[in-house]
Design a protein around this nucleic acid. Structure first.
Lengths: 167, 167
DNA sequence: CCGGAATACATGACATGTCACGTTCCTTGC
DNA sequence: GCAAGGAACGTGACATGTCATGTATTCCGG
């Protein structure tokens, strides 16, 4: 099914993923009181226009089940990191919005997180390999999008409020 | 902290990890009734001499908290996929052993899993990039081992039973 | 060998994630 | 415009993961 070299590459990938996830989780938790899950949410929001994202879009973007996100946002909003506001474009929908406290937490956590990423991921890497690695990861990403079960992120159409032909 | 190219590479990595994890989980769950976590455990055991591994070693190998593994093995043994036997080399220790049913489940799940890996990971990849990708992942792995908080897998020393100088 | 420190694991309480389902609203075809 | 189907989200029940702690065993310095 896979060639030997593919197998070895895959095993190397899985080993990296498992350990890195473990290390990132611990570093964030102990240094910032954020879980990696929290960080992913905050990061996705901070990177979005208006620091705001509809739940389904956010879930798609970070590849979470929507109900997981719903539960998690309830907890995060209890901690003041995000707010949940009814969407203006769709009354069924909810937007998650980054709060000031959430942004501060993200900013406080980022240097330590980035330091870990640099140390564990890039410091051991031949810089000459970087462009190839990047291209490979982007190709894989494209393939996952193309053949996966989730929609592409950021491509869902929302009705824009204020554009209805007036009554 | 990170160069632009490093950042983009890192983001690509995270996007791939998040989506692939989601897709693997779903594929395994629906096609085989195994979670990705189950699969990682079964796989690690099947790959070990005697299909047996002491808990701490197994936890290190798949980068889990030991208590997570303890709970999970209890559930998996309830399903007949593994057994827990007292270790012969250390009476504090427990070995996880793959059962016949566990091996069967692993064998049944593997083709579908491998197909997904091939389709999502390797089919989109320029074969010429494979050696570089593999080397890069192995370099990162080495770096994670070198600077991480977990011991290297498979390097812990166990007292070998039957080698005591007799009484 | 003996006592204190460290290690291996289990467990209970609690945090987090999944699944099935209900409610509300939107959309589509007439 | 209206009914039927679908989409967005929340929730409760349950599966899973984490943390703090307890018990048994081993290790190590003297």
């Amino acid at each position: 099914m896979l060639t030997d070299e593919q197998q070895e590459t895959w095993f190397a990938y899985m080993r990296v993923v498992l350990r890195l996830q473990y290390e990132m989780n611990r570093q964030l938790q102990t240094d910032s009181g954020l879980s990696l899950a929290d960080y992913d949410v905050l990061n996705a929001l901070a990177d979005s226009p208006g620091a705001r994202l509809q739940l389904t879009d956010l879930a798609t973007r970070i590849a979470w089940e929507r109900s997981r996100l719903s539960h998690h946002l309830k907890r995060m909003s209890g901690r003041g990191l995000v707010e949940r506001t009814p969407s203006e474009s769709d009354r069924r929908a909810t937007d998650a919005v980054l709060t000031d406290a959430g942004l501060s937490a993200l900013r406080a956590a980022t240097p330590g997180h980035a330091a870990l990423v640099r140390r564990m991921f890039f410091d051991g890497l031949d810089p000459a390999a970087l462009p190839v690695l990047r291209a490979a990861l982007e190709a894989v990403h494209e393939q996952v999008l193309a053949t996966g079960t989730l929609p592409r992120p950021g491509q869902r159409q929302h009705r824009l409020p204020g554009l209805q032909t007036g009554g």
